[in-house]
């Protein structure tokens, strides 16, 4: 932990207003308003909305990766459940979109309890393989069931709206997803500095030590999964207004890989890391007009490069450069 973050925490506990965070929040809100009101192209706005949804998924993946240090390859399953739930609710059950979102989040949380209870005793590659496996099963299930529309998927949704906000309008869509993303980030920031957040951090750094200090490692890991699954489901639901269709492909492991890339580009240690990564990951290829495969190739190579040079992401890379520069200036003085 760096000195500044300790100082920040000490400040928070004394009840002083954390100016740095307020400033950050303000500038982010200003940025969102700027983009939302400034941009005119519906395409750009809905892309920005989708980016926020995708960032939400990356944030959820980072709860696992940055939180407890596991690689949840099968996290796309929760994303898929979140996408399928409103689709099924609207097309088969006659329920509105919001109800579907809540159903998906609830279902994914229940499923996360079950899955976590079974699998979180495993760590490392074993957890990743089982997690990948579960998403594989989920995808085959979606392909074979009738209620999911089989390989064709579900489409032709009636009204994609949350309360009075109609998400088929690109500007509303962007504002809604950005607001939800911001809300989740604020919750997460509070969770991070809570007892639970500290327990997670200690487990990530050394599970045996954490256990010896009286932390119930298994339970805290389970909590992390149950906490992150509904966020992934929410992300899945929020991507529907952009994609307009839900196919078994939403559960493809490639989606998790995309999110992992976003997380790693931004850095696992930073709360905003996944969001920055997601923005780079979705916006840049659009402007460069990349073929999807070139995109995968380039970003995979970037990931490998980051992991080889700076496993902490761009964030760490910047810090590394900063420290080098500081050292150089000290040397001169």
């Amino acid at each position: 932990m760096t000195e500044s973050s300790i100082a920040l925490k000490a400040q928070g506990s004394r009840g002083v207003v954390p100016w740095k965070q307020v400033l950050l929040l303000g500038s982010v809100v200003a940025l969102v308003l700027g983009i939302g009101l400034g941009a005119d192209s519906p395409f750009l706005l809905s892309l920005a909305g989708y980016t926020c949804g995708f960032a939400l998924f990356a944030v959820s993946v980072n709860v696992m990766l940055g939180g407890i240090g596991e690689v949840p390859l099968g996290h796309c399953m929760f994303f898929g459940i979140g996408a399928y739930a409103p689709a099924i609710a609207m097309n088969h059950l006659g329920l509105p979109y919001e109800a579907g979102i809540l159903l998906g989040m609830g279902f994914s949380a229940v499923l996360a309890v079950l899955i976590g209870w079974l699998t979180l005793k495993l760590t490392g590659a074993y957890f990743s393989i089982v997690s990948w496996g579960l998403s594989g099963v989920a995808m085959v299930t979606a392909l074979n069931l009738e209620i999911t529309g089989g390989p064709l998927g579900l489409f032709g949704f009636t009204r994609l709206a949350i309360g009075p906000f109609d998400l088929s309008d690109p500007r509303t869509y962007f504002f809604a997803t950005a607001a939800i993303l911001l809300l989740v980030l604020i919750v997460l920031a509070n969770v991070r500095s809570s007892r639970f957040g500290n327990a997670l951090e200690s487990i990530r750094q050394g599970r045996h030590l954490a256990q010896s200090l009286g932390i119930n490692v298994f339970r805290e890991r389970l909590k992390a999964l149950v906490f992150s699954a509904p966020i992934a489901a929410l992300a899945g639901a929020l991507c529907i207004p952009y994609t307009q269709i839900v196919t078994p492909e939403v559960m493809s492991v490639l989606r998790t890989v995309d999110a992992l890339l976003a997380v790693l580009i931004g850095g696992t240690g930073l709360l905003f890391g996944p969001v920055i990564g997601a923005v780079i990951f979705t916006i840049l290829p659009q402007f460069l007009q990349f073929d999807p495969n070139v995109k995968v190739l380039v970003f995979s190579l970037i990931i490998i490069f980051i992991m080889v040079v700076a496993p902490g992401g761009l964030h760490q890379l910047f810090k590394l450069i900063e420290r080098r520069l500081e050292k150089r200036s000290e040397g001169r003085a």
Partner: peptide, 12 residues
């Protein structure tokens, strides 16, 4: 966790 991510990225 580094080796999982790197080999996965390599495969992609």
């Amino acid at each position: 966790h580094g080796s999982i991510i790197i080999t996965f990225a390599l495969s992609q």
